[in-house]
Amino acid sequence: MKLHEYQAKQVFADAGIPTPASTLATTVDEAVEAAEEIGYPVAIKAQVQVGGRGKAGGIKLVDDAEEAREAAESIIGMDLKGIHVDRVLVEEAVDFVNELYVGVTMDRGQGEPVAMVSTRGGVNIEEVAEEDPDAIAREHIDPAFGMQPYQARKAVYDAGVDREVANDVASVLRTLYQLWDDRDGADAEINPLMVTSDGEVIAADAVMNIDDDALFRQPELAEMEDEAGDGDALEQKADEYGFDYVRLDGNVGIIGNGAGLVMTTLDLVDFYGGSPANFLDVGGGAKAQRIANALDMVFSDDNVDSVVFNIFGGITRGDEVANGINQALEQFEEIPKPVVVRLAGTNAEEGMEILNEELVTVEHTLEDAVQRAVDYADEEVEA
């Protein structure tokens, strides 16, 4: 379960992490009224769970009522990366001199939680990790003992945080870890954690994702899921269909049967210069309706320019999968995006002979299938 920014900030504030004054608004008039009460300047921020909101026009800084109304009118009701914006957070603008990053997640390779700190806040931390991994200080934590004060200080100092605010940042980091632990978190982060000219630290953004399997222990957070409203319609649809689905920012749709198979496909899309649009694991079975449901989801994502099927036949036979794909695609009057299929495993050769090549492109290796899908997506972008 992913909390919206306004919900995560409520959780953070209740735990003692400083956050800006803010009000949730669902109409333009409510947004203007909230801005007047908070006092200008304010930020008006779309409450959708996608990255890059600012670049996409979903965050605007305003200095008066006229600008607030214009910003609210442009954001409320907009389509932001395929998600309808139905609410905004009106928030006190922070006069900052520095932006930091703090986060907590599980390092599955190490088998322990890891706390992270960086002075490169305010940007995509995944890009920082890839381009300059040394810019992120990491401290692993024994869950039996929790985060000790010295560990928080060490992470902060290793990151090169200014000593004048180091203790406050360490305090925020310890609180963030405690929240992550107490609330059955999957990820918790503040990006950016802003440092003001007065030496205060304020959480200008908030991310908190909760382990779905632990929600029965978190009734307050489960209520927030209901309060959040529609959220990402595709992820809701995935729940209805029984798929494991995560929406990403790219344009190559990915469908596979098995989490490892899908992850491998994601990695290859990235390797060949593409950008994955989703993680979609349809699980076992190859019934036409299940395949049609998967295609309906991927085709419904406006960001998707091509689709790659990566199916391994174990118990499920390749010829059954092929029949399912054919029947599913025949339900569409027009195939909206090019589809590439790779089959492997039981009866894979029979399946590839069955596939209707007027509807799909068939490739014999995963590498070829991914490259073809990336090429199709590039052609759509250039068209």
Rank of each mutant, 00 (worst) to 15 (best):
V262E: 01
D182C: 07
G231I: 05
D132A: 06
Q371A: 08
E112W: 08
A13T: 12
E334Q: 15
E30A: 03
E131L: 15
F299K: 00
T264S: 13
S171N: 13
P143A: 13
M106P: 04
E127T: 11
D14Y: 08
A277W: 06
G54L: 12
T175W: 03
V282Q: 10
A348W: 04
V85N: 00
D107T: 04
E67P: 07
V360F: 00
V374H: 03
V97I: 06
A43L: 09
Q371K: 12
E320I: 09
V321N: 08
S74K: 11
Q331A: 07
G258A: 10
L295N: 04
E139H: 14
V114T: 06
D184R: 13
A206H: 04
K337A: 00
L89N: 02
V307R: 03
A373I: 07
E164Q: 15
R153K: 15
M263G: 01
F243E: 12
L234E: 05
V123I: 08
R247L: 14
E330N: 08
V104R: 12
N167S: 12
A21K: 15
V114P: 01
N251H: 02
L221M: 07
P20I: 15
S22L: 11
N293Q: 15
R290W: 01
P336L: 02
L221W: 09
I255W: 02
A228D: 10
A8R: 06
N98S: 15
V339S: 00
V340A: 05
G58M: 03
V50Y: 07
G54D: 07
T316R: 11
E131Y: 11
E30K: 01
L266M: 12
F279H: 13
A129P: 12
A170M: 12
I311N: 06
D211W: 09
D184W: 09
E235Y: 09
E37M: 08
F243M: 14
P143Y: 10
G274E: 00
I44Q: 06
